[in-house]
Nucleic acid binder design. Structure first.
Lengths: 110, 110
DNA sequence: ACCAAGGTACGATCGCGTTCGTACCTAAGG
DNA sequence: CCTTAGGTACGAACGCGATCGTACCTTGGT
């Protein structure tokens, strides 16, 4: 029983925390990628190509989690990142669309 | 001819600048009030009740202007603040709705 | 002309967030 | 068991942004 879904924040009540989270370049790029993937597949935290140390990555993902934007699934020695799409859409409708529009493939939709 | 509409930024190209601008408590309260006023009336910069010095107010309004969120109309010894609603809606549809939802009177609509 | 009110420019301070170094933990594999 | 890979905890350094003090400018009133 070492595995749990530790870390889920109750909710993103605070729009300020969300804006502060999205003010950072790296965190915004993570959210942009997540928002663009409508399949909401679970991602590894190395799959974002962040050019910072792993300690800093830990910091950034924590900020995103505490803002209620992502879930971090703890597998012990691995970590899964999942977008809290439905929660975000409920509290802040349109926010993910703003991020998706910033995606490199944002306007490319056959 | 001392009066001009000095200071209009071309546009809010950068979503990062917008999020950074809205990350601050005082600037966000200004934008919340502006977003809630659908009449888009011109406001004086003292009408927001910001609890900071006037130098700091100058700073905050400049950040909002440089992010493309407001226009500052220069009357010489007075200043007018106006929301760039149509521009914001075009570039970042839904953003003002997010802010308006945070308004104290957000859900109160007769 | 003078003065008061509102605003800006420049500079300094100060706190917070980002970043990384070191050390430690956990699971998977030889 | 030991090693390796991924992740976290703690703490320090660094930079940037928020804030204000001082000084100066502009307009309107007296």
């Amino acid at each position: 029983m070492g595995m749990n879904q530790a870390g889920q924040e109750a909710d993103a009540h605070d729009l300020g925390a969300v804006f502060r989270a999205l003010a950072d370049r790296h965190r915004r790029s993570v959210m942009t990628e997540l928002a663009a993937d409508h399949g909401d597949s679970e991602r590894g935290c190395n799959s974002f190509g962040l050019s910072v140390s792993k300690q800093t990555q830990t910091h950034h993902f924590r900020v995103l989690r505490e803002a209620g934007l992502i879930d971090e699934i703890d597998y012990g020695n691995r970590k899964g990142i999942r977008l809290r799409r439905s929660d975000i859409e409920r509290r802040f409708p349109g926010l993910l669309a703003l991020l998706e529009a910033e995606s490199p493939a944002g306007t490319a939709s056959p």
